[in-house]
Design a protein around this nucleic acid. Sequence first.
DNA 1: CACATTCACAACCGAGTGCTTGTGCTAGCG
DNA 2: CGCTAGCACAAGCACTCGGTTGTGAATGTG
Lengths: 117, 117
Amino acid sequence: MTAARTLPPTPLSEPLVDLVAQRFRVLGEPMRIRLLDLLREGEATVGELQQSLGASQQNVSKHLGILHGAGMVTRSKRGTSVVYAITDDSVFDLCDQVCGGIRRQLSDMESILKLPS
Amino acid sequence: MTAARTLPPTPLSEPLVDLVAQRFRVLGEPMRIRLLDLLREGEATVGELQQSLGASQQNVSKHLGILHGAGMVTRSKRGTSVVYAITDDSVFDLCDQVCGGIRRQLSDMESILKLPS
DNA sequence: CACATTCACAACCGAGTGCTTGTGCTAGCG
DNA sequence: CGCTAGCACAAGCACTCGGTTGTGAATGTG
């Protein structure tokens, strides 16, 4: 009866579906992807991230708050600054898989376009 | 032929960031997750999916169109019906990873709640 | 050929979301 | 203490997006 531990049941329960969708939606914003990508090189403060992205402080802080609420980044204070860091590197596996899917799709489109109709 | 999967550069280029975010956003809807989950058991027509979900035909068709536009499902006609099927099973790896992350987060919350402060 | 079935597309509306502006709070500093 | 720096929270606005309604195209049937 503990089969659901490893893989989710089929069909998926409604709350699980909502959780999965919510998690994907968090990653569905370019600025949040950029923030995670920047944090991939190591922890950083809000000001550093703001300067790297060229965005407003409030906007960066808001998206970091969303990522923190989703448990994807950790928050810690260092003087007057707040340092953010990646909670779990497994997020990048997701992104890499998506990038792989995109690359596959692009190569398919290329091969189709190069076919003389 | 896809050869070895090369990792994307760091930092990510802007168009790649947008593509990744767009792809995540497609998966950020409960109904689309449910549709993919149903198609996991095999191909199905719009009517079958509509009946399983209890949603309107136009809504189901619309979300299937989005999934088809993202290249996640294939479309083929069979009589008056249209049969949809999963293009690449790798999508489920994404969902399973997300489910794993959710489970991990839930277990962390549980252990925290059970800790007598 | 007339009719029914199955599905996709377009227009519309309400809700959710991202971005900006403004403000308050906390930590360092003279 | 008063001041500045760094960050988070709240309100407002514009846009996007999901859901519904309406309609048309394609196929099958009598």
